[in-house]
Design a binder for these strands. Structure first.
Lengths: 199, 199
DNA sequence: GTCTATACTTTGATAGAC
DNA sequence: GTCTATCAAAGTATAGAC
């Protein structure tokens, strides 16, 4: 653990508290007064750390999305078997978000609350998630190993599964993030039904 | 089309406009002034139709959820084959929301913005969705036709797929709600991968 | 880096005339 | 059923002392 300089430490506390409050109550439903109280600060003092509430939200979201994207990039490189890539992608993606549901809730719910100039930057990065996944699916399709379902539908079906976890899943519960990621991969790849003899 | 009495017509217009605005911008980001303008009304006039903004949101959500629940109930009754029930449930559920994404966006995003006394009522009804689906899954499990995945995980994986559609799916696009419902059923039941000879 | 004080805007909501 | 007028509260943000 490299210890942060004191100024940065405070900033990290602030970001963490903001993420927690925004995730639990929503961006608009959380006032800066509330955030300041959570930190034991006066509300005016917050403006030492950011220029506006909008910019604060943007900083949070951009950090998260960039981190996830960096992890995905390395998975997709190289000429490995596409089914292995797909499995890795889905396991990584599921675990990444299952471990920090606050981040997930923010990314799923609050991007819309950004002004266009901020939002456009993030949406561009989100499209790179999507492209990474559809590319793998298209590789599988070329090899005749994917069913006749559009790649975008399949990709969004998966993103839906994962992005919805913040509404019900709890990483400390009976199912660990690792187990969850295996279950999602099994469901997405082979379905929940046990193959029947006669079929 | 039975024509509504004039008072009720106005009320329906108001509900529709509110649903559209809340879905597009979010509950907190939409002011009553904005809603009044969309209807060509003075903002004070709105209070003839509801007592508070909270109550307006609650009325909208309760209408939607009750309608969906009524449809599901009839599907689940009777001693039919559980796999057929499952397919019917998923087709019905997917089409219901794929046809009206504004409703879906509201139900997924805005329930949290209700005061506890309102929210609790809706969450109770939502749990009945979930119970209806897990019951069917458990019936399949008893017959050895479901894989070793917890019913709640499977159920939420499906809800995730469907509930996320409001972020990307457009019913007027290349894939109709009917086609989408078939695709989701195929993915959820049998997966996206084509079964291989050697496996 | 944190505070006090305050400016400015918008919001949800009410009272009462027509 | 719709309007005008008005209110209190809460919101974001700024200026300037320490």
């Amino acid at each position: 653990m490299p210890s942060l300089p004191k100024g940065r430490q405070r900033q990290k506390q602030l970001y963490d508290a903001a993420a927690r409050l925004f995730a639990a109550q929503g961006y608009h439903a959380t006032s800066l007064r509330e955030l300041a109280e959570a930190l034991g600060l006066n509300k005016s003092s917050l403006y030492h750390y950011f220029d506006s509430k909008q910019e604060l939200l943007y900083q949070l979201l951009d950090d998260y999305i960039s981190e996830a994207l960096a992890g995905i990039k390395s998975l997709c490189a190289g000429p490995r078997d596409p089914e292995e890539k797909l499995a890795d992608f889905m396991r990584y993606y599921t675990r990444f978000y299952a471990r920090d549901l606050d981040r997930l809730a923010l990314l799923v719910n609050e991007v819309d609350n950004l002004e266009p100039r901020y939002r456009k930057v993030l949406e561009k990065k989100e499209r790179r998630y999507l492209a990474a996944l559809t590319d793998i699916l298209d590789q599988l399709r070329e090899q005749g190993r994917l069913k006749e379902v559009p790649s975008t539908v399949a990709a969004f079906a998966f993103f839906g599964m994962v992005h919805y976890t913040f509404r019900w899943y709890r990483p400390k519960g009976k199912v660990s993030p690792e187990e969850l990621s295996e279950m999602f991969w099994e469901i997405f790849g082979r379905g929940v039904l046990r193959p029947q003899e006669g079929a």
